[in-house]
Nucleic acid binder design. Sequence first.
DNA 1: AATTCTTTTTAAAATTTTTAAAAAGATTTT
DNA 2: AAAATCTTTTTAAAAATTTTAAAAAGAATT
Lengths: 414, 414
Amino acid sequence: MKKCLIYVDTNNKMAERNKISLIQYSDTIKSLYYNKVLTSTDISDQTGKSIPYTIKVLSELIKEGYVAEKGFANSSGGRKPINYSLIPNTHYILSVAMDQFSAQAVVVDMNNNFVTKVAHYSFDLGKLKAATFLTYLESFIQEMPIAKTDIIGVVLTMPGFVDTENGINHSFLEVPGQTLVEFIQDRISIPVFLDNNSTAIALGEQKFGVAAHVKNVMVLNLGWGIGLGMIVDDKIFRGNNGFAGEFSHIPIFNNGKLCTCGKRGCLETEASLIAITSNAKEGMKNGQITSLSSYAEVNADHIIAEAIKGDLFSVKLISEAAYHVGQGLAILIHLMNPGAVVLSGKASVVGNIWMAPIQQALNEHCIPRMIKNTNFFISDLNNDAQLIGGAALMVENLGEKLAEKMKILNKMTA
Amino acid sequence: MKKCLIYVDTNNKMAERNKISLIQYSDTIKSLYYNKVLTSTDISDQTGKSIPYTIKVLSELIKEGYVAEKGFANSSGGRKPINYSLIPNTHYILSVAMDQFSAQAVVVDMNNNFVTKVAHYSFDLGKLKAATFLTYLESFIQEMPIAKTDIIGVVLTMPGFVDTENGINHSFLEVPGQTLVEFIQDRISIPVFLDNNSTAIALGEQKFGVAAHVKNVMVLNLGWGIGLGMIVDDKIFRGNNGFAGEFSHIPIFNNGKLCTCGKRGCLETEASLIAITSNAKEGMKNGQITSLSSYAEVNADHIIAEAIKGDLFSVKLISEAAYHVGQGLAILIHLMNPGAVVLSGKASVVGNIWMAPIQQALNEHCIPRMIKNTNFFISDLNNDAQLIGGAALMVENLGEKLAEKMKILNKMTA
DNA sequence: AATTCTTTTTAAAATTTTTAAAAAGATTTT
DNA sequence: AAAATCTTTTTAAAAATTTTAAAAAGAATT
């Protein structure tokens, strides 16, 4: 005979749900979002609050329709604890993931599931106007099968020197006289958050990916450049001004090659898809035999595709770049002594091609003791890391940050 | 007419002082130790506790003879707050600072003042036996003009791969079958703490030196190698296994030079006192004119001394090394985006000789935005940073860590 | 099947914080 | 210069949260 422990409202509309609870109890929501199912003890551990208080919060959240009991967890020899979960369709997050040439948008529910198709947009980010991007976003919101009022916030993650605090990207989508976040938020009337793409990817990998629960993680975003997202002590590490993790531009080569940043000898000049593509063209001009020859104009996607098919030249191009990434990584490991390193980002679909030369470089350049307890992973999030991480960034901001934005928006409408 | 606010016991012997209070109220003690004079509001801010609670703790500490009122602080227009300070002679810390060739020992009071002469010991750390070191320490304790029972703890800071948690140095002073800390603690019956020298220097600079109160600081220990202590988010950063900050051995040169660590091309091979000394000998063999020629066997101290006197060759040697340090620092800054960088350690007495070439390298190798808000300092602690930082490490460990050690020692005597 | 051991949950006591009021002193106004 | 106003600290009372202890529920052992 099952006992009814607490009355659970299964009809979401009946419960008077209130976004204020998301803010007030953000720590508990956060724990449940990242772990799907937890007991009161688990939540108490994660939020650092006592069990009696945690149980009080949970019953409040149940009353408001945010949380539901989910049976019992196992016990190694004692009373079985009640499981708790978030109810998925209470609210949603709109995650927008951008790179140099495209953006993806999707709506994510409170169980971290995609509830719309992933929309794709193509452009050259260097030339994209904020107003044009806004039309993409507005049309997505128009067409999505979710009520706009149920969206907690929009998280835009993108490359460049992003000032998360002030909502500005110093490299792209600049809006004269206004911050990018203000510009978007004013038009769509939903809280908007801006962050760096590699930071999002790192958070995605550390919460839902191969590095889940590792407290010190370095996540490489193998793509047009070589991005780096750092999780230190279980928290996103941003440095003094939010610009930490500029891995792509660490000066380590004496090659005289001019980098996109204006300096010479950056890691990016030998180790990124930019370098790989350039080396491919160079090699083909010199008569290299390769299946890449079938393309009119070779780009990075072609090289990845042909490497997967087994084209030796393509594999060699990636391997060379990977060795150089390994050189940079050796430095990073000496400085940060991480618990895990993750290869993620667009180019990590051929992660195993990258891995061997990276390991080779690490064997050559790392003090064995420095690397002994560091685990290496290839992402298994299939290029969704940035979208997933973007949604997670919203969850990270559920407390005061969200409250602030909501206050601003309420003032506007009033 | 002055009012007597709280009865202050000025006779220390009268108050029944209890080391337990140091543990129980370690946060308050810590704040006062680092800041000398604080108001209740300041302490409340620093400990994160409320003002009523803070005042309760302070009155308790006053009753026990640890804290005294020190007049009033200024107010910008309101009631003047009471100042509080630690009473200096309640307890003491024994700080022992080691490098490759020597050790210094001193007793520090609760106001961070040296209350004994600094004792010096010379040796070759690579050959030094733990037992020999212990005799030095025991004779120091024997002769110091402070009661042994008034010493809260001994902090030993030294180079090498230090496992602070377990009290082991994997590089030096290994004791078979026992940890180094156990070995010392068993004999002297005082809690012993072990840490890395560069960590101590960094803490010294961030609490009492040029980088006081900066929350993200990279402190370079310019010495036999190039040590690095990192303060991240106002906390000592140690990485996953405590080995973070291995700056000396980041692989950045293609010079083929074998490093002390067994690898090739480490920063140390071009940028440390090891490299400088080796380059000096090389240059002199090739007939370089220099005042260094007056020494039978040139060592690093000579080069520093002659550089101060203006010997061009010595200055040039240091400048070349400094430029290479700058190259490494450029990488570090791109990754960590610190608020401040400090040049400290033995060789920083000629800090201004180092500074110019470092700045030169940074101008060449850093993205301007990465360096815009980073301040550069030369230590003003006159080689006492490690001793001062060692004492500060004791204060950092006042809470649970000290309680643990005291429990172990009490068991032994019982 | 009864007892013992574990673990979670509830209840009561203790601690700590928050809020509000009072006290002390500086600044401005009359 | 005295009175009134404004600031800031300190004290007091109320509210929130944690700690400790007890009770409840279930698994493992005797």
